[in-house]
Design a protein around this nucleic acid. Structure first.
Length: 478
DNA sequence: ATGTGC
């Protein structure tokens, strides 16, 4: 494989073999050296072979191996000639991150963090197969969740109207087709709305540890020492079911439309085909379910905090900074070689990033740019950035989404045999509660890259601008 | 990621 260093934040894999476009990897020397497994770069090249791909197959600095497409991948396809692929979105459709600010200071929360986390752990169902005992969606309600997303939750009293303006696409993407959702997916999802799930999903209570750009941080409500809450989850078993059924559904389509694939996991269908439309319609349902899920969790969090601190909602001031998807395919318009073009942008482990002034950035922060949320690992820190003009000109308005794994789950389990991660984290000032027995070992901090390295690259590449660094004090894991 | 696996 040929790969060239283009500049201080970019590597290029020139067209070779069946590649229709080059591969572009955003990384500097240090990060590139950390990619010891070439398999994810091969996946990057495989994506470049798909019909209708525009400009390049791209990967963010947090790239690692995924199903078919690499995680950290961005690929845009022409609406006429292009395809849509479930592997380009991932199993957890609209997995994403929401960040909340509060009116609380670190000093008043830290001494009581254990009790607070225990209260929140009881309020938010967590872990593999987590569900609600009583709350259950009828089929009619499930349809409404799929078609309306976060606004369904708000209309039922879960949260405030004002939350919606601070969610990507106002918490609802278009094109939802409930007829494309199976009975089995409904059955699996009906009691899972407002649950966390497992693996790398979390609710994290932390504080603003470092302000990097004060004007923008002030405008986002990120003041030094201010308590914040991060929520990372997606569409649970519902999205998983939609994805796995769609892969089955699209298998024959690949051959039917004469698409040759370098890897079976890249199963796809033309965007114009009935099969492609069906996937997009079902995917939108799962994406909207995930927006509603994060909205419900926000509500449970507010309720739990109000009871715990014995303060009113107004006094606590829990506000949504932003909610961004990082596993999704969306129809967007972008400028390609000087011309506006409608594209299907796949972001798999990549967030949207829009620069200051863009009409889709919420009015309250339009002059600073769309908040880009990049969580790190449980022990170190996370970053809040805002989109920069380079994202629109280079990556179809996309940026990195996290630290990226350096150890797979099994490797992490081996590396931590006999260790008590909760005790290690507690000594570092982070109180953790987890539902699963092995989750903390799978997710221990050193299983991930240092997210500061990822942030350095996206800043150098002009994709986003760091605004603040957040540190955790209490974490709920699944 | 996932009621984890043909």
């Amino acid at each position: 494989m040929k790969i060239e260093r283009t500049d201080d934040s970019t590597y290029t894999i020139p067209r070779q073999g069946k590649m229709r476009v080059p591969g572009v990897l955003f990384a500097d020397g240090r990060l590139y050296a950390g990619i010891d497994d070439g398999a994810c770069l091969e996946q990057l090249m495989n994506v470049a072979c798909l019909p209708g791909i525009v400009e390049a197959s791209m990967a963010m600095p947090d790239i690692h191996w995924g199903y078919g497409f690499p995680i950290g991948g961005v690929a845009a396809f022409d609406m006429e000639e292009g395809i849509v692929s479930p592997g380009g979105v991932g199993y957890d459709i609209n997995c994403g991150v929401r960040l909340l600010t509060t009116g609380l200071e670190k000093d008043e929360v830290q001494p009581r963090i254990r009790e607070l986390i225990d209260v929140l752990f009881a309020a938010i169902p967590s872990g593999l197969g987590s569900h609600h005992r009583e709350f259950r969606l009828s089929e009619k309600e499930m349809r409404a969740v799929c078609e309306r997303g976060a606004s369904w939750a708000v209309s039922k009293g879960y949260g405030d109207r004002g939350d919606l303006a601070h969610i990507e696409d106002l918490g609802c993407i278009g094109g939802a087709d409930f007829e494309a959702v199976s009975q089995r997916a409904y059955e699996r999802g009906k009691d899972q709305l407002g649950t966390l799930g497992s693996g790398n999903h979390f609710v994290e209570v932390g504080y603003v540890d470092q302000v990097i750009r004060k004007t923008q941080a002030d405008q986002l409500g990120l003041y030094p020492g201010r308590v914040v809450v991060g929520i990372h989850t997606g569409s649970r078993g519902f999205g998983y079911q939609v994805c796995s059924e769609s892969i089955e559904d699209l298998m024959p389509a690949t051959r039917k439309y004469g698409i040759s694939l370098p890897d079976k996991q890249l199963v796809c269908a033309p965007l114009k085909s009935p099969e492609g439309r069906r996937y997009l319609g079902a995917m939108a349902c799962a994406a909207n379910f995930a927006f509603a899920n994060r909205q419900m969790i926000t509500h449970f969090l507010r309720e739990g905090m109000e009871a715990f601190f014995r303060r009113s909602a107004g006094e606590l001031g829990v506000r949504v900074v932003y909610d961004v998807a990082h596993n999704i395919a969306k129809i967007e318009e972008h400028e390609v070689q000087g011309r506006r073009q409608k594209l299907c942008v796949h972001r798999k482990g990549a967030t949207r990033a829009l620069p200051p002034g863009h009409p889709l950035v919420p009015e309250s922060c339009r002059n600073v740019g769309q908040p880009v949320l990049i969580p790190g690992d449980m022990g170190r820190y996370s970053y809040v950035l805002v989109g920069a003009p380079g994202a629109l000109s280079r990556t179809f308005g996309s940026c990195a989404h996290g630290a990226g794994r350096v150890l797979g789950r099994n490797q992490a389990l081996k590396a931590t045999q006999g260790r008590r991660i909760e005790d290690e984290l507690s000594r570092q000032g982070v109180y953790v509660r987890a539902a699963g027995r092995t989750t903390l070992r799978e997710e221990f901090p050193q299983a991930y890259k240092d997210v500061a390295d990822v942030v350095r690259v996206v800043e150098k590449a002009g994709l986003a601008l760091p605004i603040a660094r957040l540190k955790p004090i209490g974490v709920i894991k699944g």
